[in-house]
Structures are given as C-alpha cells and as structure tokens.
Amino acid sequence: MESKTAIDKLLATPVAAINLGVEDFADNLESQGAWVVHVNWTPPAGGDPEIIAILDKIL
C-alpha cells in the first residue's frame, strides 16, 4: 500500500480547521459541527511591505 499523505488524511478524518480572515467561514464550519479555531487575523507588520519582507527572511 502507498503511504497516506496529509491529503488522504484530510479526506479520511473530520475537518479540524484554522480560519484566517472572514469570521463567517468559522461560524459556518462550527454550525456544521466541524472543529474550527478562528484566528483574529490582522495584516502582519501593519501591512508594511518592507518589514514583511524582512520578517519573511527571519521569522
């Protein structure tokens, strides 16, 4: 048998989601009985592209 990839596992196990962005999506998942953690997302580094570029290299 081939080994199971993360995709295979996704299709075989209940959805346990991390939601970034529109909170409705988290509510929707919750209403369907799926597990979900909503991330209170804000633009990284206040959206400053120079700082984001630096962070991407060092974080």
């Binding site: 804000t42 633009p43 990284p44 580094a45 206040g46 700082i51 962070l55 060092i58 974080l59």
Partner: peptide, 8 residues
C-alpha cells in the same frame, strides 16, 4: 522584535 512586528 520579530514577533512584535509580525503579530502587531
């Protein structure tokens, strides 16, 4: 400082 900037 990285985490401060990244998380806001």
């Amino acid at each position: 400082i990285r985490k401060v900037a990244a998380s806001g």
